[in-house]
Each structure stands twice: as structure tokens, then as C-alpha cells.
Simulated assay, not measured.
Amino acid sequence: MTELRATGWQKFWAEGRWWKAALVVVLYLALYRLAGFILGALFGDFVDKDNIFANPASVFFGIGAPIVVGAALLVIFVASVGWVRPIFSRQPVPGRWWMWIFVVLVIVPIVLRFAGIDYAEYGVAVVATSLFVGLFIGFTEELLYRGIVVKILRDGGHREWTVAVLSSLIFALSHLLNLLSGQAVLVVLVTVVFTFGFGLMMYLVMRATGNIVWAMLIHALTDPTTFLAAGGVDASNGAAHSPILDVAAPFNYLFVLAALIALIFIRGRVTARANLPVASEAL
């Protein structure tokens, strides 16, 4: 009976449909919020509500703990459907040279933020904890959106243009959840636009490098350096700390513009044969 249930579970997810990609994200976000609520009740006293980067414990329990739980849930899901190898193996559709332009584009602001962060304001322990938490953010979000969602869409026979757009759109729309945290509507809408562009960048990083791990690592450096440069999560007061950060700030807008340009050139499709993805046409 256990084997039949496992087979049925795997068969359900193997039949790629766009709504299943949305479903797995909704289920994850619901469990993530639940984990955040429970962890907040248990360890909320460790979090400095006025300054989440006040100390390492505040960073970990305020940002990292729910993400760690989310990472564990996604690993269990991926293992249960037998997708560990397909997601972490080489991309079934090869990248092209021009995609490396976008890899450089996302690395440049990371380097600038590293150079411009006011480390004295935070201390070594807070910076180290932020980077540690960033590893889980990069791993979890890329595994979900560029791993699970992309695989479901590809298994559904969608062209890579559609895969790139839908996976980035789902990634962006998931940030509407920030409305539940009391963020202003305008701030959330701007975040949705920016994250769509960033999602496209991560898709292109995955295609260019041929492996999702590189997208995970770049994403893992993007979020914590953004938080530390801005002075908080979804804050924007860090640019005054250093002229270098003034140079890094416009890259969110460049990501959106670059994403729109990249969409002109994305081609290809992956088909599933005996659950093994094969490139059916080159880019």
C-alpha cells in the first residue's frame, strides 16, 4: 500500500501542469507562514522588533529560522517525488554565451554592496549570521522557483520562454504575501516588479552556468548584502552610508529592463520521455 501511494504521489507531480506549479508554491508559503507563526511564538523574544540586525540571535530567529524549516520541507518534497537528480543535474537545455552578460549583471551589485556596507554598524557576528541565513534563502527560493516550478512547467511541455516568464511571475507574485506583514501596498507592488526581473536573472544564471547551484549561491549573496546595505529587510536607507551603494542601488531597475530584453532571445523546449528531460530544440 505504501508503494502504491508513493507511486501515485510521484505520478501526480510528474504530470506537469502550470496550476501544479502554482499549487506547490501556495502550499509551501502556507507552511512557511505557519512555521513563522510557531517559531515566533516560541522564540519571538530573541527578535528585536525595532532593529532585526541588532544581534545574531535576532537575525537568525527573525529571518532565518522559518527559512530553515522551509528548506527542510522542500528537500523532503523533492526527495519524495524523485527529483533530486533532475533538479541538481546539468540543465537539459544548454545556455548561450549572451546569458553570461546577465550573470555578470547580478554579480556586480553584490560586489558593490560588499564594498559599501558599514560593517562597523553591525559587527562581525551579525554579518556572519546574515550571510549564513542567506545560504538558506538562496537554497530554498531557488530550489522552489527555479527548481521545482521550472521542472513542473518543463514537464508540461512549455517552451523555455513560457517557463522563464511563468516561474519568474510566480516568484514575483509570491511577494504579495508581504501585505500580510503590514507593508505598504505601493512598496509591495514595486517589490513584485523588481523580483520579477531578479527571477529572470536567476533563470538566466541557471541556464548560463548549466546548474541551479550557481543561482542558489548568487541568490544567497544577494539577499543578505541587500539587507545589510539597506539597513534592514525591505528598507532603503543604506545608500547614504557610502557612495558605492549609490552605484549599486539602480541595479534593481536594470534587472527589470534586462529581463524584458532577454525575453526577446529566449528559445527552446524540454520534453519528458520516460521522466527524463531531453532538449528537443536548441536555443
Rank of each mutant, 00 (worst) to 15 (best):
I107W: 05
E15G: 12
I76M: 09
L131S: 09
V78F: 09
L74I: 15
A235I: 04
W83H: 01
M1E: 11
F194N: 10
L186N: 13
L153E: 02
R154V: 04
A249S: 12
P56R: 03
V68W: 03
I101F: 14
A72C: 11
W19R: 11
A72F: 13
V256D: 11
L29Y: 09
A115H: 01
A79E: 10
A235S: 14
Q183L: 15
V103D: 03
V233Y: 13
S58H: 08
V192F: 11
D48L: 01
N178K: 11
D223R: 00
G156L: 06
F132Y: 07
D48G: 00
G134D: 08
L217K: 02
W100A: 05
E3I: 06
V149W: 07
L143A: 10
A41I: 04
F227N: 01
T225Y: 03
G40R: 03
Y253M: 11
I110L: 07
M216Q: 13
A249G: 04
I87G: 01
V59I: 05
Y32I: 00
I38C: 10
S168Y: 03
Q10C: 11
L131C: 07
R267Y: 09
T271W: 04
R267L: 08
L180W: 09
M201D: 02
G123D: 04
K11F: 12
A282M: 10
D234G: 07
V93D: 04
W19L: 12
G197C: 10
F60K: 01
A262S: 12
P109C: 01
F114S: 06
G231N: 01
V69K: 02
L73A: 14
T226E: 02
R207Y: 06
I264F: 14
A258Y: 06
G8M: 03
D50A: 15
G64H: 08
P109F: 01
I148Y: 05
A79M: 14
I38Y: 11
L42I: 09
K49C: 00
A21S: 12
R96A: 14
R17G: 06
Q10I: 09
W97A: 14
A125R: 03
G95I: 03
L283K: 11
S168C: 09
N178S: 12
L263T: 02
A115W: 03
D50E: 14
Y145R: 08
V187C: 00
I52E: 05
E121F: 02
E281L: 14
G16W: 08
F77M: 07
